[in-house]
């Protein structure tokens, strides 16, 4: 689904590359989480997959970027639009402003793709119930809470059925309730196995719950790549500017204090920690 080979990218006027010789292959159906400190290249990677690097941000891109069978640097944004869905942090800025209700907002992408009316209605109803927005369908998108707006942004992208869905820190501007709502939708999305998902995220506890695979970015390079249990509890995280969850920290401290001697996999989530300390 994703095929990146030796991708290096400089933003305009930048002297340090945002992506530095990055190679990545993601098979169809995988839920792949990308973690890393601010400035590590998470957003740039997301924008590259969706074609906004280099088509929108300009700058200099070298290497091979192939997503859902599309040669991204050679294709137009309009051609990529139906193939890659992108959701980013600010929920408000993802509302088009061109439609007056939640239902119509979701329709916007389908209208642009020229989807026939009957199919459009059916797909909208499906996605409204998937994102638990059915009861808000006739409300103004501007009247929703942040979490609801972000679910709307996700629904608006999913309804277009892009083979690849890219989410760039979708909960970073939400309160805990809003984040929970969004994570619930992402968990359902992970369960369907229909779409390939790339999720850039700082909240490691959640990443552990639904990612099939976790990639750590550092200075535009992939420095770790593997199953969540291995990567998220690894001792290397701190050196890449990441903070392991308090559960992992507590387990490591307990290990150091001699409370635990075995080398069982360190916990990342609450459930794992309870199991670990029992």
């Amino acid at each position: 689904m994703i095929h990146l080979r030796d991708v290096t990218y400089f933003y305009p006027r930048a002297t340090v590359p945002a992506l530095a010789g990055l190679s990545l292959d993601v098979p169809a159906g995988q839920f792949c989480a990308v973690i890393g400190a601010n400035g590590a290249g998470k957003s740039t990677l997301c924008y590259t997959l969706a074609g906004f690097v280099p088509h929108f941000y300009r700058g200099k891109l070298t290497g091979q970027v192939e997503v859902a069978g599309v040669d991204v640097p050679a294709a137009s944004l309009a051609a990529i639009a139906g193939q890659v869905g992108l959701v980013f942090a600010n929920p408000f800025n993802q509302i088009t402003g061109a439609r007056f209700t939640v239902r119509e907002e979701i329709a916007f992408g389908l209208e642009n793709l020229g989807v026939p009316l009957d199919e459009m209605r059916a797909r909208i109803d499906d996605i409204l119930s998937f994102a638990k927005l059915t009861e808000l369908a006739e409300r103004s998108p501007f009247a929703l809470s942040g979490g609801q707006q972000q679910r709307l942004a996700i629904a608006s992208v999913l309804v277009m059925r892009p083979p690849l869905v890219v989410l760039d820190e979708p909960t970073s501007q939400l309160d805990p309730i809003g984040s929970k709502e969004v994570f619930a939708v992402l968990r359902d999305l992970a369960a369907t196995d229909e779409a390939t998902v790339v999720l850039a995220e700082q909240k490691l506890e959640w990443v552990a719950v639904f990612a099939d695979r976790v990639i750590v970015l550092h200075e535009g390079r992939i420095v770790a790549d593997g199953p969540p249990g291995d990567v998220l509890a690894s001792g290397d995280l701190t050196q890449y500017g990441l903070q392991p969850t308090r559960y992992t920290q507590a387990a490591r401290a307990a290990l150091a204090a001699g409370l635990r001697r075995d080398s069982a996999e360190l916990p990342v989530t609450l459930e794992e920690a309870v199991e670990y300390f029992k």
Binding site: A81, N93, I95, G109, N112
Partner: peptide
């Protein structure tokens, strides 16, 4: 917002 519009195939 321009990016969000492109994602929704506005430029198609």
């Amino acid at each position: 917002r321009a990016i969000a519009l492109e994602v929704r195939a506005f430029g198609r």
